[in-house]
Design a protein around this nucleic acid. Structure first.
Lengths: 153, 153
DNA sequence: ATCGATGCAAAGCGTTTGCAGGGGT
DNA sequence: ACCCCTGCAAACGCTTTGCATCGAT
């Protein structure tokens, strides 16, 4: 389940290819995110990188995450329950998630990603949508439910 | 694709069964939501019910939607892109969504819902998760992409 | 008479933005 | 020298909350 993690060179290249600079903050935010097993919130990433970069600000973490999302190194998972923060995923390979409706915590599922799942659901769907002006770029599948108390929140 | 819509009696019963009163505001919010073909934001519902209930407040719409979600008459679809409002769905039968990553608009997909999709993906998954302390209550499948400009936003 | 629901205003929270200063190329 | 990025603080948008009043039982 550990996703393919980009090393600094690969990530730097990806950032530069998008006209963005591979700053220490961006690399550190990515490293930290990739090292955390849960999918953390921006705040959690902020607290986790602070020891390495004591002067980093929360706003910079947000901006760094935005840059990483822009180059496709990170996925942003919007909050489901209201008033909850978004979660971030240093995605390597694509995968599915389980989402706890109480805490908002997100876990990876130990199931292989199926690139043809939509096609399998309905072979005509993508074409159908395209002809109606919708461009499909991907899909997201989440299990919803609750996890026992006491664990990671 | 038109979902089974609850009439006032059924909705009133559902609310009362949960210890909630079937107020005019709640019924109107539900009716309005069910009558809208897109999945609107709370603000959009608010503006749409105003003609019928000129004195209703946005806070009451939020509270009404919360009550409707609590009794299972409405689904709340969290914002995907940041800084966007949540959308609400007067769900009848379960279905899948297409989500526009630019505008946040959500459309129903003309595909039948598959209750056994997860089981089909991996028959052992649900049991596996259960044994690890995760209780699965459902799943959500969304196509992601972009819709041409000019339409409903 | 009770008890929940409403409507208003204000607070709350996560996130973004404006801007002066700093650092890499 | 340039331009992007940072960090701070303030603003922002969406949602919730506190509270007095209202309305239905």
């Amino acid at each position: 389940m550990t996703p393919t993690r980009l090393d600094h060179d690969a990530l730097s290249d990806a950032l530069q290819a998008a006209g963005l600079r591979p700053t220490a903050q961006r690399l550190a935010v990515y490293d930290q995110l990739a090292a955390m097993d849960q999918h953390p919130t921006a705040e959690q990433v902020f607290r986790a990188v602070r020891p390495r970069l004591p002067r980093i600000s929360l706003a910079t973490v947000y901006k760094a995450l935005e840059a990483l999302v822009a180059v496709g190194a990170v996925d942003r998972l919007g909050a489901e329950s209201a008033a909850g923060p978004a979660r971030y995923d240093a995605r390597g390979d694509r995968h599915y998630h389980f989402r706890c409706l109480r805490t908002g915590a997100i876990h990876d599922l130990p199931v292989q990603y199926d690139p043809k799942l939509i096609e399998r659901l309905d072979p005509a769907l993508a074409d159908d949508l395209r002809s109606r002006g919708f461009q499909v770029t991907g899909y997201r599948l989440e299990l919803l439910g609750y996890q026992d108390d006491g664990r990671d929140a």
